[in-house]
Structures are given as structure tokens and as C-alpha cells.
Design a protein around this nucleic acid. Structure first.
Lengths: 347, 347
DNA sequence: GTGAAAGCGCTAACAC
DNA sequence: GTGTTAGCGCTTTCAC
């Protein structure tokens, strides 16, 4: 592959001049510049990024740490991340932790070694010390989807989990459901805790006693949702609705309900969380709380890039809204054929 | 961040010695090595990867080009890619084309500039000239999920699309279905063409005339599957089964069937393709043809790494098998309550 | 407007 | 065993 020196020689100029010309900097005659560009094009010249990084002290690379890509939720977030990163002229080095703290540490070490210009954490739990450490070292850091205790300030993008869950619960109550179960994700995760808290608060505020047996855990996986729902139906057969902490689990929960021969929403209503693309495709289409997943990714990158460019950051903590999307898995009790109201698919 | 020079100075040795010690090379006394390692650890030293790349002429980085991450199929493939890459000690620079040829070209240019050690294409169509060009330039290249005309040999990982589709069709016929529709993905894609060809061949071999109106296109998207199925039901209302070229589309097709008030599989059977994780979670669970998605990604990386290391490559074209997975969306015609046979979820 | 030279952080020949 | 030196490909003073 052609090097700067090759094209400089081919043009009969010095490397310095060629460099200036190629980078669009002033101090080169129009004629020389034209020539250099032409030759560079002909030789299919591309600057050697590592060499450039060495002198420029930047890599135009963003390190992203995400639990996994099989989950449709993270897939959407990463979609936003990728798209915004490309737009901002950054490259993505993607790493997945698979929920394994050692692997997370390993990935972070490599990202550090690569001298990523900034690091985006999309991990909902664990390894806080790593985040603080890398931040303390001077790396720009943005955390998406969780709050982190860090006085000097890692920037955060969070979502109104509590508010979204409150909307979901109010919707269920408005439809007439009273005996509402809850399938939690991973209990240790903040987002899960917020949703559970909202579930409890809303029921309590209506004078409904929340029983222990109404709450199960499904680990954010379809199989977990299936098992949690199966337990719920066995232990609390009189539930008339269930609020599931993510759509991906709701899929499994719906399967469990079906296997018991029950109808959705006539026998039992379901509300999910996230509004991943598949939520609009279930049968019936899933009523859920929309998180702006792509926007979360985008916003994370936008903030990280501001940090990298040392631009003024408007806010160190960005709260994105959630929104109830009513589809077919909830309906007025007593009039199963006419759901309260419907809304078209989002996309 | 500490540089090699810093730790060398701190140890009172030269950079060369420090380098040898850190890289586990011979020619350093045990005592010195211990000291260097200790100081490096204390200073949290990590070598500067770009500087290293500059002299080593390698980046330990794999460039991956994939259409998008929203599709559960690609998400799974990338999962395999990521996992194997980490195991092999490589980093992933991930780029998505969004089906946009210019963006693909842009991504490839950047990957080239980054001096990725090798490039993995998971794009099912387009820009063949780019692949040939980058390969001609000396970059190791592996293509997953398509065959490319290239005598000198890009390495390919392909899947038995034709065989898998034949299995699916034979299964439908064995269940007693005769009027079988087909929803294709993107017609330009090789994999699609193979599946369509199998569909036609099997029906023809049974003396069944394939009507034009039995075949629709759904672009590998749920919404496309929904619309294709809707058209199919309108134009060919007497179909008793439909073979959908991917699970993701099948989801939309199933929704369309449900909306018409038809039952699956009693009124119309459905077979998908891929066996993405959600296939086991639909209602009923989807009968489909399993592609070894994770393995495709893994194998692609394994071959690419062999190419990079200039090891002997066993085969320039690896064909991975497909496998029918019978679940709940197909059943014997006439005995809807007892599907021919079932198989547990894959995971 | 252009060229010579230094240096980014590292590895590898080669002396000693 | 260890240190000295050159050089990977680029950008950037600073002379001219």
C-alpha cells in the first residue's frame, strides 16, 4: 500500500507538503494540491491510521461495552450507537461482556491499550470501580442505562423507568385489571428495581395489597419469562394481568399462558417493556412501554463525542422519556372484544 | 499513562530490556524481568497499541461488515464472530452497511485505513468489486453466507440453503400439505434464490404445479412478511401451508394469518428458516430450518485468522449443514391436534 | 510555498 | 544480559 512518502516522491514534493495538501491545510499552492490529490487518488492512498494516531494522540475510535447482542434491546441500542458514531466520524470497537465481570475487565483493558478516544458503557450493573478507574485516568466515559455514583462526573444517559412502569400500571388499572402479577428482570439492575418499585407503589396507592406470590424473576430472557409465568399461573391462578419487565421475556410469558390454554387478553392481560421491534409482531401485538433505544445509543455517542472534543456538555445526566404503547394484549375486562384503545405500530 | 520509557527508567534499565521482559522474550535475567513486571503492574502500564502496530505491521483487529444488527439473524452471526475473535485474541471493528452500497464502500475504506488484519464480509449481496479489490490488495478476506466469483480465492463460509429448503418442503409434503405458498426474502440474494429453487424443485418433483400467485416477496422483514402473507391470503385463499424464507418474516406472516381469523397450523401451516432464538417462542413455536448462525460467525473468524497467520487452510469453501426443527406450526392435515412429531427447543 | 528534521511509543538488530 | 540505535508512517515546527 502506498505511503505518504510514495505519493510525495511521485509528485516531486516533500512529505510535509503532501501531508498539508492531503489534509486540506493552507500553505500549499493550488497547483501542487491538485497534483497531490490526483496522485493520491490514482495510487489509492489512505493514510496509515496507527501512525496517525501515534502523532495525533487520538484514534477516532469509540470503545463500546455491551452485555450481549442476542438481546433485541441491546441490539437496538447498539444500532443507535453505530449509526451516530459513523456520522460523527468515529469507528466502533465493540466488545461484549456476556455478563462476565472478568471478561468485562479484559475488554476494558484492551480498549485502554487501543487508546480508544472514549468509552461507552451500556452495561446495567457491576464493575463500578472499573468505570471510575478508567474515568479517573482521563478517558471520557459515558454510561447508558444506569446511574453511577461518581461525584466528579461520569456522564449518564438514563430512561424514565419508574415513570414508564407507572404508566403501564395505570393503564392496566384503567382497563379494570386488579390482580396484577409482575415478572422482574435481573433484580440487581437499577432499571429493574425502578420498575418493581413503580409496580408496588401504584398497586399500593390503589389500596391493593401486593402479594409476594405475585412477583417472579425472569432474568430478562424468554425462557426465564416462560418459567416465571408458569410459576405465577400455578401459585396465583387468579391473576388477571401480568406486567413483564421486558418484551423479550414477555414472549416467553405469553407462550406459558398459551400452553395453559388461557387467552390473551381475555383471560389474562400482558404488558411488556422496551417496545423492541418484535413487540409489534406478537400475537396479539404486545402492549408495552417504549424506551427510546436507538436514541439512547445516539445520545450516548453524542455526549461522548462532546466530552472527547472538550465541548461544553449541557447536562451530565440526560433523562429520556418512556411512553406507553397500547396494542392488543390488554383490554377492558368484561368487554374482551373491544380493547380500550389501540395505537398503530411504531415502525 | 505510563509509557515503556517510564517503566524502563523506573527500573533503571533500557527500553529494549523492558520491552523484552514485558513481552516474555528470552535474553533477560529472571531478576530484571520480575522487577520490570512488578513496576509495570504498579504503574498500570499497557503498551500503546497504535505504536505497536506501526512497527509490528499488524493491528490484531478484524474488520467486520454486516448489513445491520436489528435482524436477529445477523445478531446471532455477529455473536459468533465476536466470541471467536476475542478467543483468538483479536478485536472487532464492527461496521454496518444498512444495505447502502456507498456506506459499505465508506466502511471498507476506513477499515483499510485502520489496517485491519483481515476483513470479514457478512453481506449477502452487492459490491463484489470491492471485495475483489481489497483482496487483490493483499488483505485476507472471508465471506460468510455467499459465494463470490473469484478464481484466486476469497475464502467462503456458506450454508446448505438448498438442502435445508428441500427438507422443509419434504416435511410439509409428509404432513400432507399440497398447496404450499412461498414468501421469499430479497430476490437478489443467493441464499434466497437457492431456497426458492428448492421450493420449486420439490413441488415439481411431486407433480404439483407451482403457480405464480403462490410466491411473494417479503424483504426479510416482519412487516414485509405481513404484507406478503396478506396478499397471498387474498389472491390464493386455498393455500394450506406457507414456507417463509426467514423466521423474522414468518413472524409477520403469522400475524397476517391470525388477523384473518385463521388458525396455525389447523388452517394453514408455517415453516420458517434460520431458527433464530425467537422462533422457539412464537405461538405456536415455529417449525423452521436451522442455520448454524453462531457457528457461521465462528468459522468465518477461524478461517480469517488462519489466513492472517498464513497457516494452511483446509478448504477455501466451507459448507455448513442446515437442519429441520419441527415445532408447532406444522401438523398432519386431518389430525390438527397431533402434529407429526415434535422436537424440543434448541436453546 | 516548500523542504528538512524531529518525534509520537514501540520493537528488533546489533554491539558490547 | 543489557544498552544503543534505527526506523515503522505520519504531522508539525521552523528555516529558507
Amino acid at each position: 500500500m502506498a505511503r505518504l512518502e510514495d505519493i510525495a516522491r511521485a509528485c516531486g514534493v516533500s512529505k510535509a507538503t503532501a501531508s498539508l495538501a492531503l489534509n486540506g491545510k493552507p500553505g500549499v499552492s493550488a497547483e501542487t494540491r491538485r497534483l497531490v490529490l490526483e496522485v493520491a487518488k490514482k495510487l489509492n492512498y489512505r493514510p496509515h491510521a496507527p501512525a496517525r494516531s501515534l502523532v495525533l494522540h487520538r484514534t477516532d475510535t469509540l470503545g463500546v461495552i455491551v452485555p450481549d447482542l442476542s438481546s433485541p434491546f441491546y441490539a437496538e441500542v447498539v444500532r443507535g450507537v453505530e449509526d451516530e458514531a459513523v456520522q460523527q466520524g468515529f469507528f466502533l470497537v465493540l466488545t461484549t461482556t456476556l455478563g462476565n465481570p472478568e471478561r468485562e475487565e479484559f475488554c476494558l483493558r484492551l480498549l485502554r491499550e487501543r487508546r480508544a478516544d472514549g468509552i461507552l458503557f451500556v452495561t446495567p450493573r457491576g464493575n463500578e470501580h472499573l468505570i471510575r478507574e478508567i474515568h479517573a485516568e482521563g478517558f471520557p466515559v459515558v454510561v447508558v442505562d444506569r446511574e453511577i455514583q461518581c461525584e466528579d462526573g461520569v456522564v449518564e444517559v438514563i430512561v424514565d423507568n419508574y415513570g414508564g412502569a407507572v404508566q403501564a400500571m395505570h393503564h392496566l388499572l384503567a382497563c379494570g385489571y386488579r390482580r396484577i402479577g409482575f415478572i422482574n428482570g435481573i433484580p440487581e439492575i437499577q432499571a429493574s428495581q425502578e420498575r418493581l418499585r413503580a409496580y408496588r407503589d401504584v398497586l399500593s396507592s390503589q389500596g391493593i395489597r401486593v402479594r409476594r406470590s405475585w412477583v417472579e424473576v425472569g432474568w430478562f430472557l424468554p425462557e426465564g419469562g416462560y418459567q416465571a409465568m408458569t410459576r405465577l399461573l400455578r401459585v396465583s391462578p387468579r391473576l388477571d394481568a401480568v406486567f413483564v419487565a421486558c418484551d423479550w421475556m414477555a414472549l416467553g410469558a405469553m407462550r406459558a399462558i398459551r400452553e395453559k390454554g388461557l387467552r390473551i387478553p381475555e383471560d389474562i392481560a400482558v404488558v411488556g417493556f422496551d417496545d423492541v421491534p418484535l413487540a409489534a409482531q406478537t400475537d396479539p401485538p404486545l402492549t408495552t412501554v417504549r424506551q427510546p433505544m436507538v436514541e439512547m445509543g445516539r445520545m450516548g455517542v453524542r455526549l461522548l463525542v462532546q466530552l472527547i472534543r472538550k465541548e461544553q456538555i449541557s447536562q451530565k445526566k440526560v433523562l429520556l422519556p418512556t411512553e406507553l404503547v397500547v396494542r392488543g394484549t390488554t383490554a377492558h375486562v368484561g368487554s374482551p372484544e373491544s380493547p380500550c384503545f389501540r395505537q398503530g405500530n411504531h415502525g
